[in-house]
């Protein structure tokens, strides 16, 4: 890491200013003691609330654990049961459907918006407005959209009816509920990803576009031939972030539909929550968490590979 080089000279320089070697090394020993003292809270937090629970989560998924009694080792039973659990498979399907809609729309909207912003205006004010939904709670977004999408009184349905259409049960119709949840999620997160993509665009030297213009390239051509390839690393990162976030969707579903109607929006995280806190089957819920985790790992690595995220054409 390049950063190491920055600090390295410092202690050496200091040592030359202090003739007696012993005092320098005792200062260094003092440094070590102080360092461990300073990182002690972080280490404690890391062990108790990150490392231990991660391992414990893996362990619990091989047990029958109902919280009130001790966990009982049952080997792969949870995973075998999972294989035959139709509700699990349908919730996985629902989640994947949600992820595809959310990710596709988020990427489309945020790349378009970022590019348009970049070509049109440097106004921080507009960028700040775009980020606004990112700052509020999922719960607030869920409540506001429940109101705006209400079947009888919601402004969206009133507008649809004014235009001659029929009112839509956005959150109560089985066919509409997942796309609606995806749209709410896009509204909530696309501003954030737009800013990330915009930051990526800012790292592209403007001379490249000047050169492109001299070669007679139009805006569309420059976007396809210059912007997209140069933006690939950051787009890969945004894609991975969005996919991981979408797979763990929970708050908005819990507040608006609780998985309904008739399990039509029962996403995985919702099912896990229901198993753990509705039926107190922590072993089974842990097993599902582990499966979701494994999928996320595989998907992230696959995406990074496919998009060759670590390489930039900029060199």
């Amino acid at each position: 890491m390049t950063t190491e080089r920055i600090t390295a000279p410092a202690p050496a320089g200091r040592a030359t200013l202090r003739p007696p070697r012993s005092s320098a090394s005792s200062a260094r020993r003092g440094d070590a003691r102080l360092a461990w003292l300073l990182i002690a809270p972080s280490i404690l937090g890391f062990i108790v609330f990150a490392a231990y629970p991660a391992l414990r989560g893996v362990y619990l998924s091989f047990t029958d654990y109902r919280v009130l009694s001790d966990p009982e080792w049952i080997g792969l039973d949870n995973f075998v049961e999972l294989g035959g659990d139709a509700k699990f498979w349908s919730s996985l399907g629902t989640t994947i459907y949600f992820v595809i809609l959310t990710v596709a729309l988020t990427m489309l909207v945020s790349v378009t918006t970022a590019v348009v912003l970049h070509r049109l205006t440097s106004s921080t004010a507009i960028r700040s407005v775009v980020i606004l939904p990112f700052l509020i709670s999922n719960v607030v977004a869920a409540v506001v959209f429940s109101w705006m999408l209400d079947r009888q009184l919601g402004i969206v349905n009133i507008a649809i009816e004014a235009l001659g259409g029929d009112a839509v049960g956005f959150l109560t119709d089985k066919g509409w509920v997942v796309p609606t949840l995806a749209l709410i999620t896009v509204w909530k997160t696309a501003g954030y990803t737009t800013i990330l993509v915009f930051a990526g665009l800012q790292t592209i030297p403007p001379q490249i576009y000047e050169a492109g213009k001299l070669d007679g390239a139009g805006e569309v051509q420059m976007f396809r031939r210059l912007t997209l390839p140069l933006l690939r690393p950051i787009m890969a990162m945004v894609l991975v972030l969005t996919v991981i976030g979408a797979f763990q969707v929970f708050d908005i579903v819990q507040v608006t539909t609780k998985g309904g109607p008739a399990n039509a929006s029962l996403v995985l995280q919702m099912y896990i929550y229901d198993k753990a806190f509705g039926q107190f089957d922590f072993g089974y819920a842990s097993a599902m968490s582990l499966v979701l985790f494994a999928m996320l790992i595989v998907i992230s690595f696959a995406q990074m590979r496919l998009l060759r995220a670590s390489e930039s054409d900029q060199g």
């Binding site: 990150a50 629970p53 989560g57 991981i244 995280q269 753990a276 819920a285 582990l290 985790f293």
Partner: peptide
């Protein structure tokens, strides 16, 4: 380590 793995434990 994502939240899903550590929340329940």
């Amino acid at each position: 380590i994502p939240g899903i793995l550590t929340l329940l434990p």
